[in-house]
Design a protein around this nucleic acid. Structure first.
Lengths: 204, 204
DNA sequence: CCCATTACTGACAATTATGTCAATAAATGA
DNA sequence: TCATTTATTGACATAATTGTCAGTAATGGG
């Protein structure tokens, strides 16, 4: 006999469909961030979420369904996070600084850059029309009307900014280690470089 | 009966160990570039190389052995490619331009950026002491002695440069598509940004 | 309280991927 | 020519991963 009561029928927890999915996706996201995309195994995700694999399949149909849902969730979170910190102020340069900082934060924290890299490697980056729309909204609605800069140049600037934010978010820590630089140096330098450019553009 | 001679004993091809490994690694690299790291299945690599999986295992021991060998091969190629195009000239700014262009080329072509992302995602980026040594050699031996800039600043510059080269190499094409920009625009803008900075640094 | 719905589970089937092994055949040297 | 070595192979064994299904148990509506 064990110490525990032998006849212990596990108090089965029943969530709402939304809560169940949320629980599973949170577990999947944690695994993605901690161990990389190749560790997104069905059983691992289920175990992490405190359920069995059949439960995961019940809600998402397949492991691909989990991955797709996770992608959408993370993209949505990223976009919201950037948008909510992109409230227009009077000063264009200060605004650029705030917006870019928010972007760097978003890509670095919670593994958004890792997710983007995963999408890129698996060739699933086509599904990102959501991102396209978000970027367009940021450019047209939030920045373009306030800043005396042609949309063309603004888009170019966004392109460089996102490229650097992704690069810094994904490789920053490793590169800093390889070069013996303090943590956060890549991000710091990239932001400074971009900001100097922003000042130039608005001043000219 | 088939059209072919029914008793056709396949003319078995026997390579030297080196050639056999090279053949397999080339196939693996092609698969990595074309379809991403998760397509590096034992059977797929073998089929692509025109052999059976047992042959691959004979030479590399396991699929991990293949991946490790492929990593080392690609890193070596990348380092060589960068080093060979980093021949010092008289003009520091021109040198910076040439060196950075070479770096961007190296990371973009043949999926070096994809490899780096893969290493990052799989958490294998520690093995990159090879890269560390190469970077140090570039900084100390090839640049530092020729350019009147403190090593500190030079290292910072390398950090940003590599970050951007990786970002552009990995995400450039997709981002350009999402933003409706012409191909190569991210790389172009990044290089321009870095070059303007290099001019500033050497002028100051 | 009772019933219908459905989230959840355990056990098992199916599929896929990796690895083993004895036998075969291509090169090399004696 | 003959023997040794070993790159190569097919068939098979093992493991890992995904997916199926009938049954169980929370939950909410009547």
């Amino acid at each position: 006999m064990s110490i525990e009561d032998p006849a212990k029928p596990s108090p089965r927890l029943r969530r709402s469909p939304e809560a169940a999915k949320e629980n599973i996706l949170a577990a999947a996201e944690a695994l993605l961030v901690e161990q990389g995309p190749q560790s997104l195994k069905l059983v691992d995700v289920a175990t992490r979420a405190g359920v069995v694999n059949a439960t995961v399949l019940h809600h998402f149909g397949s492991i691909d369904g989990v991955q797709t849902a996770l992608m959408e969730r993370m993209v949505r979170q990223l976009v919201e996070k950037v948008l909510e910190t992109t409230t227009p102020t009077g000063d264009p340069v200060a605004m650029a600084g705030i917006g870019m900082t928010a972007m760097f934060d978003a890509f670095e924290g919670k593994g958004a850059a890792r997710l983007a890299a995963w999408l890129e490697l698996t060739g699933e980056s086509r599904r990102l029309t959501l991102v396209r729309e978000a970027v367009r909204e940021v450019v047209e609605t939030r920045i373009s009307q306030r800043v005396p800069v042609p949309a063309e140049i603004l888009e170019d600037f966004m392109l460089v900014c996102i490229t650097m934010a992704l690069g810094a978010g994904l490789f920053g820590a490793t590169l800093e280690g390889l070069l013996g630089k303090p943590a956060g140096r890549a991000r710091e330098l990239a932001l400074a470089l971009l900001l100097s450019r922003a000042e130039l553009a608005t001043a000219g």
